[in-house]
Structures are given as C-alpha cells and as structure tokens.
Design a protein around this nucleic acid. Structure first.
Lengths: 215, 215
DNA sequence: GTCTATAGCAGGATAGAC
DNA sequence: GTCTATCCTGCTATAGAC
C-alpha cells in the first residue's frame, strides 16, 4: 500500500482531488496536476483517458472510500452505547466531520468537493447521491424515527435528516463565513463548541427537548 | 430604466451574472458572455477592463441590489404584525428566499452565486460578508434575542442565526439533493411544505417550543 | 509506462478602423 | 462606443521515441 506514494497513478488521484476541491474543476489544468504529482504532462491521458475521467475517478476511488471511512467512524463511536439516542448519534456525526479519522485538510476537501457537486451537479453527483447520501440519510432517518411521534411519514423524516446534515456540512464548508460572523478561529475549542451547538439545535429542532447527554 | 435592455453594459452584467451563477467563473468565457449579451467581444474589456472586474461589478451592481430587495421583502411581510415572533420572522425569511419578489431563476442564481463564494471565497466574499451577511445576521440576532434566555451571549446568538440561514439556503441551493432524497419536485406545494418544516425545525431548535403561528 | 514534442484550438486581451 | 482583426498565451490531447 506504499503504492500511494510511488505509483504515479495514485499520486495523480491524490493531487487532483486536492486541487479540484480547492479550486474547482475548470480552474485546474492538467499541467498543474501532473506537476504537483511530479509526473509527466501526458500521464493523465495515459492513465485516465482525459481530464474529465480523472475527475470522476477521483470520486470513485477517493471520495467514496473516504465517505465510507467517515461512516465507519460514526459507527465505531456508537459501538459501546447501549442505546443510541438522537443526540449521541448527531454528536457522532458532527464529530466525524469536524474531527474525524483523517487530516484536517482531507476532511475539508471532502466536503468542498461534494459541495461543488451540490451547487452544480455533474455525473459525480449521481454517484454521491446513490452510493452515499441516500443510504446514509435513510439509515439516519431510521435511527431517529423511534424517537419521533408515531406515524411520522417518510418525507418529514427525510426533511429532518437533511436538516441535520445540512447544518453539519454548513459549519464545515462555510468556515470562512462562520469565522467572519463569530470572529473565532477554527481551533479545537471552537469546534467543540460548534458540535455542542449543532447537537442542541438539531435535537431540540427534532422536538426532543434540550438533550445534550452524549459522551 | 429601459436602459436595462438597451445599454450593452447593463446587458453584459445581466448575462454575466446568469452564466457565472450557473457555471462558475472559470467555466464561462468572455466570448460566451458577449455572445449572450449580443454585443462585441471587445465590449467587456472596454466597459470593465477585464473579466475579473466584470465579475466583481456583477456583485456590486446586481447581487447587492438584489440582496436589498430580498431584505425589503422580509420587512414588508412583517410590517402589519403587532409583534414579530421568531416563527413569523423565520417564515418571512424563508418565503423571501423560496418565493420572493423576483423570478425563480433570479432567486436561484442569487443563492448559487453566493454559495460559490462561501465554498471558495474571493474578493467578492468580503463584499457579501461586510455589506449583507454581517448586518443581516446581526439584525436577525437582535430580533430573536428577546425570545431567548436572558443573558444569551453574542456568540451563541450568532450560531443560532447562522443555523437558521444555513437551513434556508441549503433548501435553496441544494435543490437537486433535496429532490433526490424526498423524490419531490420543487413546485408550489412542496415549497410551502419546506417552509413549514424550516419554521418548525428552527423555531424549536431555538428552544421555543413548536411554534407555527405565523401568517 | 514514461517521456518529449507538438498539433490544434480556445482563452483573455489589445490595437486601431470607423 | 462599437466593431474587426489579431496577438499571444495557455489549454487538452495525441503521436511517436525510448
């Protein structure tokens, strides 16, 4: 697995993901990517056919894998609990996004990349939706359903789940806005405060009383 | 004011805004913009100096103006109320974004354009923050402060205000996601349902009990 | 598989006629 | 102010040597 650092194909995927996330597809040139990966200009066309395909391959081999890591992290956190309450679940979600198992930069990139697709969907959007968002929100919904009034319909459940996720995502990709408005840096202390806020706001938003009884 | 349709400079601003919002700055060429505006390739350089400056001018003369219209709309809606409760305020905000005074396309563009700056801030981000978001969130905070526990500090107030706005924005720019997850089209009925959800979720999220007593 | 070289085209910007 | 013509840079993609 040291292929990650030696294999040019792998390096291309890594550098491409970073650059696409930071600057967007059109703002990044294949020259930039190959230079960052320390390999030849022709490498992208050889390995992926064209630039567009490299972008899609980034989602297939990097983004989806990372999404799975984040999900696993959530389940790990919840493993030792006897009962998974909504506040504990939401806290685990928020922590996975704001602290998570990967580097700060990787986490930010992950959300940026997805957010670009949300604003302006391309082919990768289908992938993200079908393979991650739908099952993820479905599972999230089922987990919180027992705590909601009996007979809550599927649509309302999904609106609630979407609202939780959107808050968590916003406090990630909207960092610059949040910093400007609150005047705080995104350090450890502030992130913990953000998580407390997210848990409180969404838990009560679900109509479950002010529940901050998570780990 | 029919200058809007005849003056090439005005047409350039309109078409540029539409294209930048839909496809992003780098994906749009000056050739595309001038063609859409029905004027010459050299027009952008003549009137604005360069492409970048046109982009900033779009924010200065179009985006900020529209933000003001949206804000006015909010205050209009609230004008006849004797007491402006948080649910009424939030409903007015959500309505302004989801129905508002301008066309469906204009409303969507407005949010898309801003959202691109949120993900990847440029010079225009300062403008949006300083001239719209900060005062807007400040005013929103002050309006809801009287309903929150006494002594709620400024930071918590801003986190609450940010959360309200982020939900309203997400259900706008994240249309494709919301459609996929709920399986519903963005018609009048669904939008009204979304507004009810937003008002309920955020009002209770603020800790104010399930208050849907707005007009 | 990796390189160099280059084709072929689209991009932003400008000069200068009208 | 508006146009045409054009410069020149940078882009993606490919051909072909190694």
């Amino acid at each position: 697995m040291a292929a990650r650092e030696t294999d040019p194909k792998e390096r291309l995927l890594d550098e491409a993901e970073a650059l696409f996330a930071e600057n967007g597809y059109h703002a990044v040139s294949v020259r930039e990517i190959t230079a960052a990966a320390g390999c030849n200009l022709a490498a992208i066309n050889y390995h992926f056919g064209n630039k567009r395909n490299l972008y899609l391959e980034v989602f297939r081999t990097r983004w989806l894998a990372r999404a799975r890591v984040i999900q696993e992290r959530v389940y790990e956190t919840l493993q030792n609990k006897k009962e998974i309450t909504p506040p504990a679940l939401i806290r685990a979600l928020a922590e996975a996004f704001l602290f998570g198992p990967m580097s700060e930069k990787d986490r930010l990139r992950h959300v940026q990349l997805m957010q670009r697709e949300v604003i302006q969907p391309t082919e990768a959007f289908e992938m993200v939706m079908d393979e991650v968002m739908k099952p993820f929100l479905g599972a999230l919904g089922e987990r919180i359903r027992p705590y909601l009034p009996a007979g809550t319909d599927q649509e309302r459940l999904m609106l609630n789940a979407l609202s939780i996720i959107s808050l968590i995502l916003y406090f990630n990709f909207g960092r610059e806005s949040v910093k400007r408005i609150t005047g705080r840096a995104y350090d450890q202390a502030f992130r913990e405060e953000l998580i407390r806020h997210i848990v409180r706001f969404t838990t009560t938003g679900l109509g479950l009383g002010a529940g901050e009884n998570a780990s």
